[in-house]
Design a protein around this nucleic acid. Sequence first.
RNA 1: GGGCCCGUAGCUCAGCUGGUUAGAGCAGUCCGCUCAUAACGGAUUGGUCAGAGGUUCAAGUCCUCUCGGGCCUACCA
Length: 570
Amino acid sequence: MKRILITSAIPYINGIKHLGNLVGSQLPADLFARYNRARGNEVLFLCATDEHGTPAELAAAQTGKPIADYCTEMHEVQAKIADGFRLSFDHFGRSSSKQNKELTQHFAGRLLDQGFIKEVDEKQIYSHADNRFLPDRYIEGTCPNCSYEKARGDQCENCTKQLDPTDLISPRSAISGSENLEVRTTRHLYLMQSYLREKLNAWIEEKRDWPILTTSIAKKWLNDGDGLQDRGITRDLDWGVPVCKGGQAWPGMEGKVFYVWFDAPIEYIACAREWVDAGKGSDWERWWRTDKGADDVSYYQFMGKDNVPFHTLSFPATILGSGEPWKLVDYIKSFNYLNYDGGQFSTSQGRGIFMDQALEILPSDYWRWWLLSHAPESSDSEFTWENFQTDVNKDLADVLGNFVSRVTKFCRSKFGEVVPSGGEYGQREQNLIDNLQLRLDAYQNHMEAVDVRKSAAELRAIWVLGNEYLQSAEPWAIFKDDPNAAAATVRMSLNLIALYGQLSEPFIPDASEILQSAMGQDGPSWPESVKDTLGQLKAGDVFTVPDNLFTKITDEQRLTWNKKFSGLRD
RNA sequence: GGGCCCGUAGCUCAGCUGGUUAGAGCAGUCCGCUCAUAACGGAUUGGUCAGAGGUUCAAGUCCUCUCGGGCCUACCA
C-alpha cells in the first residue's frame, strides 16, 4: 500500500470560482485522490481557501463586512460548492487558521536563523484617502509611453510596457480615484531565493517526468536575466499573518503581515494540522516530516499554470531554506487554461460559467466528466455548449447510461430483477475479459501517470466494450431458442455494470454509486482481476433497475444556457 | 522587447528517445440490429501533419526562418 499526499492549489477567497479554475486544480486532484483510495492506497487529500491579500480586503470592504466575517462566509460558500462537485477533500482548511499563522511564523523564524531573510528598505505608494499602501497594480494613471489613460502601475495593458507606479502621469488610486498619493519608505523582509538557486536548479533538473509546462516555467524563472530573484515576503496590510520570528516579535516589522504567497503554500502543511485538530486524523507530521514517517509519502500537487513559479521555486525555497526535514513535492501536475466560447473565463469580469451556476443547471457528474475528459493538459482547451452537449449525451447517456438501461430492462422483462442462472460462458466472454483486462491495465497506467484525458478515453473505451459484447451476443434474438445462452449473456452484462460502477467512480462518483447500489454492491472496491470481478454477481443475486442514469441535454436547453451565459455575471 | 507552449481529418485531440501504407472519438455517408434514453454494432469518406528551407538512408517527429494562436515576464492571486 502506498501513501499518497495530494494538494490542490488553494482557491482565492474573493468569490466563487469558475469552471476553468475547477478543472485546473481541484477536479483533477479529486480524480487522482479517488483513484488512489479505490486502489487501496492511503490518501491524504487537502485543500483550503486562500484568504489573505489586498483583493480579499477590498472585496470585504465592498460588502461592508469585517474581513474576518467575509472570509468565514465565503469559505462556507466555497466548501458547500466543493461538496456539490463531490470534491473529496479530507480537509478543506483556511489559510487564516491559527495553525497556519503559527507555522508561517515558524518558517520565517527558521529562514532568518538560516540566513535566508534580509530586511530591505523600499519605496511604496501610500494613499491617504484609502488609508493604506497600494500594490502597484492598484495605481492607475496615464501611460508615459502610449498615453493610455488607464495604465496600471505595474504594466500598461494597452502597450504592454512594464511600468513603475512613479512612471505614471497623474497617478491615482484605482480604489478611490484619489490623487492624494505619497511615496513612502517602508521596510520589508526578502526571501533570498537566489542563495538557493543551484539547489533548486538541481532539484528541478532531476524531474524528468514532470509536465513540460511545469519544468519550462520553473527553468525560465531560474535562468531568466540574472537568475532567480529574491522576493519580498511581507506587505503593509492589516489582514494576514503578523510578521513574527517564531513566537517572538520582529522589531521594525510591527503592523506588517506576510505576503499571501508566502503563507498560502504553508497552508498545505497547516491544513494537515487542521485536519488533526478537527478530529479527522491523528498524526499530521507522518505526512509532512520525513523524520517522522513521511519519507515513504509520494506528494502530488495540482494547479493552473499561473501557480507554477510559487510551487516549483518559492515554496521549495521556503522548505529547503528552513533546514528542517519537511516533505518536498514529488510531482507537480500543472494545467493550461480552459477558455469559454472563444474567450477567457474571467472571475473579475464575470465571464463564463461559475461553479454555483453549473450545479444549478446540471448534476456534477456531467461537469466532472466533460471537464476531466477535456482537461487542458497539452494546451489551452475550449468549452462550447455544442461540444458539451454532444460529448456528454454521447458518452454518458448513450454509451454508458443506455447500456445499463438496455441490460437491466431486458433482464427484468425476461428473467425478473434477479441475476439469471443457466448457460455457460464461452469464447466471446473470454475475448471480452481479455480486452477488458488490456483496457484496465492501460487505464491504470494513465491514472498512475496523472494523464487525465487519456484516462477518460480509456474508461470510455471500457464502456464501449459492453455495447460491443451485447450487440454481438444478441440475447434478445437468442432468447427465443436458447434462453440459457441469453441468461449467461445477461449475467455477464450485469456483472459489467457492477464493474463499471467501480471503475467509473473517480470520474462520476454519483452515477457510480447508483450503479453499485442497483447491483447490490456495498462499496467501492477495485477489480484486481477482470475475470474474478466479472463473477461477483452470481445467479440468484437480486438487483434493481435504476432510473436512467443521465438525461440528455436537449437542443432547447443548450440554446437557453448558451444565451443565459453569454453575458457577464452580475 | 525577451522567453515558453501550441498549430495533425469539418470539430476535440493521440502520435515516447526520427523508422513499415499518419491514428482515436465526434460529426458525415452506407449497412445491420430492435433489448434500450431513436439508443447500439459494423463498415466507410475526410489530412501535401501551418508554410519554406535544411540535416538524414529515413522527419509529423531534429535544426533554421516565416506566418498564426496562446501564455508568462516576478507588487493580483
